[in-house]
């Protein structure tokens, strides 16, 4: 009997404790990257970026509350190392040793208070490094990451070609 009483007290207490948990709403939704808008770029491995020219990075970013920032990263894939979120198979050039590969890592703020943002970011790719050596042509990776204010993040990555025209 004593055991039963005790158990019921414990269970009662736990119910009270357990039920006072989730009363404040927290944001658990990740931001989204929409690549279906007109002029979205780059979106497939058929997209080529040319050295010495500029192109516009265009995506629609959304979040249920408020966006944070986004980052762009372009690095070589001469060793066929990594990933793509595309469904289609991409034809890669043969593997090779990098000599003077191009690299770009940049981060950008999104204006405060936005839950929708269309990137319209012109980027000029130089054709050579500061010593005048031409950058390597071939397979590269393009990565876009976006965060919201809570720190949730979404990535989009594809293989692209970078060529000299």
């Amino acid at each position: 009997m004593k055991t039963l009483k005790l158990l019921s007290v414990i269970i009662g207490l736990s119910i009270i404790l357990f039920s006072c948990g989730d009363d404040n709403e927290i944001d658990t939704e990740k931001p989204e990257i929409d690549i279906t808008i007109p002029e979205a770029f780059p979106t497939s491995c058929n997209d080529t970026i040319y050295f010495g020219e500029s192109f516009t990075i265009k995506f629609r970013l959304t979040d249920n509350i408020e966006l944070g920032s986004y980052s762009i990263d372009i690095h070589h894939n001469f060793d066929h190392h990594s990933h793509s979120t595309e469904v289609m198979e991409c034809n890669l050039n043969p593997k090779k040793t990098p000599e003077n590969p191009y690299i770009l890592i940049e981060t950008y703020d999104i204006p405060i208070g936005k839950n929708e943002y269309i990137t319209d970011l012109p980027i000029t790719i130089p054709s050579s490094n500061t010593s005048g050596e031409l950058y390597d042509e071939g397979d590269y990776h393009f990565n876009l990451s976006v965060t919201d204010q809570e720190g949730w993040t979404t990535q989009f990555g594809i293989g692209i070609k970078m060529m000299h025209r």
Binding site: I10, S69, S71, I105, E106, T147, G151, T153
Partner: peptide
């Protein structure tokens, strides 16, 4: 049964921010 209640006045916590690093990885959060 062994219930407990615990309060940390300052729990040290690795907080995910909305920023990215530009200089070390590949633009990691």
């Amino acid at each position: 049964v062994s219930p407990f209640i615990n309060y940390f006045s300052n729990y040290l916590y690795l907080n995910p921010t909305s920023r990215f690093d530009r200089l070390y990885g590949f633009g990691n959060q």
